[in-house]
């Protein structure tokens, strides 16, 4: 029974992998102070969500999950662009990009 967990790959494996990836991204968001690492962790969490969407799409045999994952990737690209622009603006204004020291929108 234990060996079948390792040798038989089910959808639960993919879901748990996505859950682990989401948890690591969440840990990065919570634990790190650098805004760029936090944004990379957000990208990891988005990828975990995408992996879950694709797993359920395969499980249900529905191609529309792929369209949803495509839209998620496009929105993630837009989010990365805007977020990195904000990081650059914050760094220019304050000289650091430490999310623990950012408490106000203006200075």
């Amino acid at each position: 029974m234990v060996s079948s967990i390792y040798s038989q790959i089910t959808y639960g494996h993919f879901l748990v992998l996505a859950g682990v990836l989401f948890g690591i991204g969440l840990a990065g968001v919570i634990l790190r102070r650098n805004a760029l690492i936090v944004m990379m962790s957000i990208e990891l969490m988005l990828n975990a969500a995408n992996m879950t969407i694709l797993t359920f799409a395969r499980m249900h045999g529905d191609m529309r999950g792929h369209a949803l994952a495509f839209i998620v990737i496009a929105v993630a690209a837009a989010e990365a662009a805007v977020g990195l622009a904000i990081v650059v603006a914050v760094y220019r204004a304050r000289g650091h990009a430490d999310v623990d020291r950012l408490s106000t929108l203006r200075h």
Partner: peptide
Amino acid sequence: VYAMLYAHFLAAIQVLVYAGAIMVLFVFV
């Protein structure tokens, strides 16, 4: 992993958009 889930197009998009474009953006910043 996406390709293992038979999402070939999204696997390619993953490499192109994420590993290509977004990471280049991160490197620039």
